[in-house]
Design a protein around this nucleic acid. Structure first.
Lengths: 216, 216, 216, 216
DNA sequence: GATGAATGAGTGTTCATTCAT
DNA sequence: AATGAATGAACACTCATTCAT
């Protein structure tokens, strides 16, 4: 099946390895803090190859960023909540998002790094523009079902719900160190996770159902 | 009245100026990305003074971090919500926090940077340990009032409410660039602010009042 | 014959040149006083190369130290005194050592520098541990021959003889400036050398033969 | 008796303290390696005072050097060997010199440092020129007595004997680290001192008496 | 006489990158 | 396609010293 010549297959593998290691290093140290030398050292190749395959530090970072975003969106596509009632679907969606974020700390860190740089790099990756929107589709679907059966208030946008859920879940990962230090609470500890996951479910359901009930 | 010698007054001013400029530069470029030379250049003094007053890049960053946290907590102390009923107090608190964060983007950025470094620096500043806890006092007070008059559910902790509000408000600032790029929504735009502020108020009130009503 | 690529041959030459110049500069100015910039300036390359080839100032100094010691020991191996009677062999050995030291002032200076640093650097060079011992072999041989034919006293160790000779010869070079200033005697002047060389020969022969005669 | 005003007495004490600490630091680290800041830190005053009292690093070092040499010569004046026969006097002188050097390692180190700098500093201190010569007086006296009673050979100069003894004794201190490393012999260890002291006594007596006996 | 504040010039080191085959 | 050698520019930091009262 795979008729790619050995040399080329190696090239592909080398490229992939560089990308993986670079992802780790950038996520770990930030863009300025990451060292080309360290990336190379953690690889079976030399740093010369980074220039050969990617052209430079910035292009390598761009490749890391694009791959990370694509990977995360692909995983999101697999969420399944259709067979539940609207409120339960919403709660489920929030809690799956919560788990999803805790499992992808590397990605969340890359996003934080990118924001430190005011989105200077992501703005260069056109293919990522509006990449988020499809992710709203599933949420929108749930909201429509909830509005139709009168469970959910009608004045809340899918993007606002997404913003709320994302904020909460991203914060757990992105701000875990300062929050932990100041409030003496380990957001990453297993014993807190169930409660923290339930909170975001409770919150979104309460929010979406609140006004609806009020309107009764 | 002020008999401090001129030279010493200058010293205080020079130190303060260095700290202010360093705050800007670190918030702008991160720890690794910040340049001692740039900080000095933007000042009336030379980079030699950074070593004279602070000892080095790391100590300067630590001073920046401590000052930023102290400043933010002092501002928080001035919030006033006592004369409102529990739900309105809570909404008010959330919305004031929202404004507060949007006005202190530099601080939020420093916090993000610190988290990229896994809290390595903040951990060295003992005076900041548990600095957050007093900030919970006001919120706790509101929750107690709400529980007492039956408005609020009793099973929600102040720290969890604070986590929810902080997440939402921090995200607005910290993730504004990537979120804006992916969802084509400018979280910083004036035309969105009122709605976004109202959301967090609605959310916390809905959440805290939801179970109470349910319990009826 | 030599199929080493030009680039690599250059590399070897560049490294060697750096080492030679560094030897001069360290011997001249001591470890702290030596300047990386000056070493580079006296070379066809840049100071960047010092870091490329050696890693830093300390490693360069270590390389200088090791090379200097190895060079000196290699030269010592070439001494020939077998065909003389014990007393003449000993005198010859002392006088050759004398000449040897006067010809290697750079090495003696490096040794003095290293002692100022309490042997902190040489202790890191395992390959130099016990490097001196082989140097004792030749001397030991002469002493044995002298003891066997009754010329030499039997209660003197080779290492003690070596210590005496070394002391005298090293002092000529290492303390030449202060001794010259205080006693108005130029230890380096050609007109003094013959007498000073004869002294150490006389001394060791007198010492080793003294007790033997006494024992008669 | 001492009517010096308090302020001036303090000045004298401060100067003396600076000199003592500077002696330690220079002897420890060499001229380039010594730090003005460290000297000040180990003092009850500030580094500004070094400039006030001495003018700069070089002048401080010169003061240290002069004081060290004067101190050492004063101690040497106290040696007493008159009441022994020539050979025993000579042996005694060599062994006292040996002890003297082992007790003044700081001075020996300063001398080594000065030689590293090719006597550049000591040459500026005219008062030290020929300071050594008086030290030869005692030795000269012994040699004369020995020649007169036929014990000592007549063709050996006091300065040559002094050179031999000095070489041996200085080496014990100045080269103790490298010699120890290469020959695995601790020149500073108590268990070696008696033997090493006896060696220099044996050597000079053997040397001075050898030719005399030969001449018989 | 005494001193806290300030500093210019350099010091060892590191960075991402390109040269030359 | 692949690579070992080389590098300019910048980097954080330190030194002995002087300013200004």
């Amino acid at each position: 099946m795979d008729e790619t010549p050995i040399r080329q297959r190696d090239a592909v593998r080398t490229r992939a390895e560089l990308l993986d290691v670079a992802t780790e290093v950038f996520a770990d140290s930030g863009y300025s803090g990451a060292r080309i030398d360290e990336i190379a050292r953690r690889t079976r190749t030399t740093k010369r190859m980074i220039y050969y395959y990617f052209g430079g530090k910035e292009q390598l970072y761009l490749a890391v960023l694009e791959k990370a975003y694509r990977g995360i969106r692909e995983k999101e596509q697999t969420l399944q909540v259709q067979d539940l009632d609207p409120a339960e679907s919403l709660r489920r969606l929030a809690e799956l998002t919560y788990d999803h974020h805790l499992e992808n700390t590397e990605f969340i860190r890359l996003v934080a790094i990118e924001n430190i740089h005011r989105g200077r790099f992501i703005r260069q990756i056109d293919s990522l523009r509006d990449l988020g929107k499809p992710a709203l589709g599933l949420l929108e679907e749930v909201l429509v079902r909830g509005r139709e059966d009168g469970t959910f208030r009608a004045d809340v946008d899918a993007v606002d719900v997404h913003l709320l859920i994302s904020s909460y879940c991203v914060f757990q990962v992105a701000n875990r160190y300062t929050f932990g230090h100041l409030f003496d609470l380990d957001l990453d500890a297993a014993e807190n996770r169930d409660r923290l996951r339930r909170v975001i479910g409770d919150v979104v359901v309460a929010w979406l159902t609140a006004a609806a009930r009020t309107a009764e």
